[in-house]
């Protein structure tokens, strides 16, 4: 497999040695294809937001169940994990040894897992207070929206584990690097969705 080097920062982490235009084009189209997937996923989230918005008048609403502490901690964990994934991309670009990439992936995994643990305990707490998905349309749409994001983060965590396995078996070859770049896009994208969720769902609910 031909290896290519990156001419400039197009997607950080594209550090494949021995520049070959054909390989670079293939890689560009791979990444572009992943962007198409991300945008279709963004549409899914957007419509879940729309449903949540139309259900807001329902009672009992989710608003009274929100707590600013856990929401802030979850946000901090996810934002920080985005930064640590940036360090994964940077280690790839620098051509650092595998263990550095693995280290930052591990940190990202722990932060993401912490996010899921907090979110699940938050949901369980809501259930304990009678705020279950079947209680009202507002709560159903809340759990679908935030739950879908949580499932995405969970699949991102599984993906990190799979990438660790690929790195262990194949080393940092071109295919593994491309997969790590795609995982990076996915992970940063989930952070963007979370920004919309904490702004529109949690903070709006806390204001009400």
């Amino acid at each position: 497999m031909a290896r290519v080097s990156e001419p400039e920062l197009i997607h950080a982490g594209l550090n494949l040695r021995n520049h070959s235009p054909a390989a670079l084009r293939r890689l560009e189209s791979d990444v572009f294809g992943f962007w198409v997937f991300l945008m279709s996923d963004a549409l899914l989230f957007a419509l879940l937001f729309a449903v949540y918005g139309t259900m807001l008048g329902g009672a009992p609403s989710a608003d009274s169940q929100f707590k600013i502490g856990p929401a802030f901690q979850e946000t901090w964990l996810l934002l920080t994990s985005s930064f640590t994934y940036g360090m994964v991309s940077l280690s790839l670009k620098l051509g650092l040894r595998r263990r550095w990439v693995a280290l930052w992936l591990g940190v990202t995994f722990c932060l993401g897992a912490g996010f899921i643990v907090l979110e699940v305990s938050d949901f369980l707490d809501m259930f304990a207070h009678g705020a279950t998905p079947e209680a009202s349309g507002a709560l159903s749409s809340f759990f679908v929206l935030v739950g879908t994001h949580g499932l995405h983060v969970t699949s991102g965590l599984i993906w990190i584990v799979l990438m660790a396995a690929q790195m262990a078996v194949y080393g940092l070859d071109d295919r593994v690097k491309i997969n790590l770049i795609r995982l990076g896009l996915f992970w940063h994208f989930l952070d963007v969705v979370w920004v919309a969720i904490f702004s529109v769902v949690y903070l709006r609910g806390l204001l009400a």
Partner: peptide
């Protein structure tokens, strides 16, 4: 590469 790191740090 320092520029790349600064991009991430600024973003964070």
């Amino acid at each position: 590469l320092r520029g790349d790191f600064l991009t991430y740090a600024t973003g964070y």
